[in-house]
Amino acid sequence: MHDKYASVVKILHSEASDLMSLAILSGRDPFRFYNGADLTSLDLTNQNLTGLNFDGADLRFAHLEGASFDKGSLNRSVLDAAQLHLKDGFEFNYQDVLQFPGKEILMFCMIRSSLIDEILIDFGINYSVFAEFSKISTGALRKARVGKVIAIETAQLIFNGVFRFSKTLDSKIGMKCINSIEQPCAKMLVGGNNKPFVEISAEDVHRLFEIRRRRIAHMKRERGTNASPYVDYRDTAEYLMFYKHLVDDIDFWTKFDEESA
């Protein structure tokens, strides 16, 4: 039998019915095994779904009564109206934060309250040790631990610190800590400067970068070679609002105008 079918046959012959066991039998990474999967109407009652991520998975009408799962693991799933309470509003994971080009758009971040406490317990270290390891102040770390708004650069240092420290630990504990930040666990926000912070979605972030791209193209057309001193500086969402006419997206800007008024 061809090797590529071996895991399929193993799953079909298995008496296991819980998602974690089936994911392990696949021989693939259990954490991401169900990304984008069609899990509609499955009976997952009382299953232990911790250690699994369901980004893009369709769980509409699945029975999740009594099921346990990691915080954020369902935040990017497709859920029906009766299941929406299972999402907690954190859309971004540590990779989204680390990869965000903060030199292009000024952005702020909020990390799920209690997440850092739970990680440091697994690490077996206190705040001052982790702050020194991550090259941030203990004050900034304490703001992050209670879910206060921090600069995205601070969030990047925290997540980078968690990832690097996890690699020094026993593989099982280290992977648990990395998985906890690989689940959606952060929010991105714009605002400040005497205005309230406004949470924005991944789609909103994409729109901001599209407006920035068009702003730069527009300025180069308008100013030619004289545009170079102006095109590469970091934008704020407020400044990009002056260029909202470059995109046909009324709903987004109406929301931003109302929430930042």
Rank of each mutant, 00 (worst) to 15 (best):
E203T: 14
A186M: 08
V149Y: 03
G191K: 00
S180G: 11
T168H: 04
V162D: 04
N179T: 06
S166N: 07
F197A: 11
I136F: 02
A202Q: 08
S201I: 06
S171L: 15
C185T: 05
A144M: 04
E203D: 15
A131P: 03
L169F: 13
S137P: 08
I173P: 05
S134R: 04
G139M: 05
E199G: 01
A131K: 02
V190Y: 02
L141M: 11
S201K: 01
I150P: 00
F163K: 09
E210A: 07
V146E: 10
F159T: 12
E153D: 14
N179Q: 15
A217L: 11
N193T: 15
R142V: 06
V198N: 03
A155I: 10
K148M: 13
L189M: 10
I178T: 11
F133M: 11
D170I: 07
I216Q: 05
S166W: 05
L157Y: 07
N160V: 04
G191Y: 00
A151N: 03
E132P: 04
I181S: 04
V198D: 07
I211Q: 04
S171Y: 14
K172E: 15
K195E: 15
R145L: 06
R213A: 15
A140G: 11
E153G: 09
L208V: 08
R207H: 13
F209V: 00
F130V: 14
V149K: 01
V129W: 08
I211G: 01
D204I: 07
N194M: 14
A217G: 02
G191W: 00
G161Y: 06
I136N: 03
I178Y: 04
I136D: 02
M219I: 11
L157R: 10
S166D: 10
I152Y: 00
G192M: 12
M188S: 00
F163D: 13
N193V: 15
K167L: 13
A186G: 07
I181W: 06
P184A: 13
I150V: 14
R142A: 12
Y127H: 12
A217S: 10
F209A: 03
R212K: 10
E199Q: 06
L208T: 08
R145Q: 09
P196N: 09
A217F: 07
A217P: 01
D204H: 05
V129E: 12
V149N: 04
G174C: 08
V205P: 07
R212P: 09
F163I: 14
L169N: 09
A151H: 02
I152K: 01
G192N: 10
D204F: 01
M188G: 00
G192K: 07
I136A: 05
E182Y: 05
T154M: 08
V190N: 00
K143S: 12
E210Y: 05
Q156W: 08
N160K: 13
V205S: 09
N160Q: 10
V198Y: 03
I211F: 01
N179M: 11
